[in-house]
Design a protein around this nucleic acid. Sequence first.
DNA 1: TTATAGCACTTGCATAATGCAAGTAAAGAG
DNA 2: CTCTTTACTTGCATTATGCAAGTGCTATAA
Lengths: 147, 147
Amino acid sequence: MHYASAIISSMKPTPKYRSDCPINYALETFGDKWSLLIIRDLMFQGKNNYSEFLKAEEKISTNILASRLEKLERAGLITKSIDPNNNAKKVYLLSEKGIDLLPMLLEMMAWSAHYDEHTGCPVEFSNQLKEDKQSLITQLKRQLIES
Amino acid sequence: MHYASAIISSMKPTPKYRSDCPINYALETFGDKWSLLIIRDLMFQGKNNYSEFLKAEEKISTNILASRLEKLERAGLITKSIDPNNNAKKVYLLSEKGIDLLPMLLEMMAWSAHYDEHTGCPVEFSNQLKEDKQSLITQLKRQLIES
DNA sequence: TTATAGCACTTGCATAATGCAAGTAAAGAG
DNA sequence: CTCTTTACTTGCATTATGCAAGTGCTATAA
């Protein structure tokens, strides 16, 4: 591409999103079969590195995991750093933007727990969700920020 | 496959889901790039037939729309019926299971409105979400049940 | 200091999902 | 009877995902 074309195309950048609808923004950010499972593992399972994510029951494949981690980092939902105790290890953590998905994830879990007859969602967790969602949010959020 | 094999394989059915995790149930039910946009149009845009869904800004293609409508119906999130005023038309409506996605969708919208600088989410809607989510849920839910 | 293992990926290729354009069938309107 | 609307289906190209194997760093033990 020569300079003039480059300038012209820089003037109308290819639109990043299909629309400016908030639902669509969410879908384009984490709307695939894997992203939210990684967020889940970070949020509820205390996992924070590549090999731990790989161990998840749903069996994500290595290339997809790598590409999702990169996408989530680019979207600002997670951060990547080197484990100070082991330079061979990377540490993935939820950013504030990622942590703020907690209320949505809890609603999602509540819905699934209600409608999936085979749900693995612990009964006490479901109950706390119904009874006192706000304190559950506060509590989980504190745990995440501490780490 | 001969009869004996058929019987044996019918004894251990291929597992329907990757896991019994509630997040995963949600993902396998509506976790793709399009399902929630259809739910959105049913829930907030008053759309209820094929050609209206096709008009959405995100430009779903006809075969994908048909397959998503079928999937959502099979999952029990929507119902399909014939328009009594026009036998050529089908009417899609949210079931209770579909309507119950409202709280999750509102959290999703709140998150996107907060983090997407180009969000199209109306300010007053965002505000009502922050100020009084519960009455917004009650109000929207009433509208959906009436139709 | 070499060997072995762990960790975080990458690569190549097969399969599946999605996207696009065109076509079809049934119903309604004129 | 014809034209339009509606709700799709079909065929094919492109993209995303899945699977197995390999790579290149640390780290750790001999």
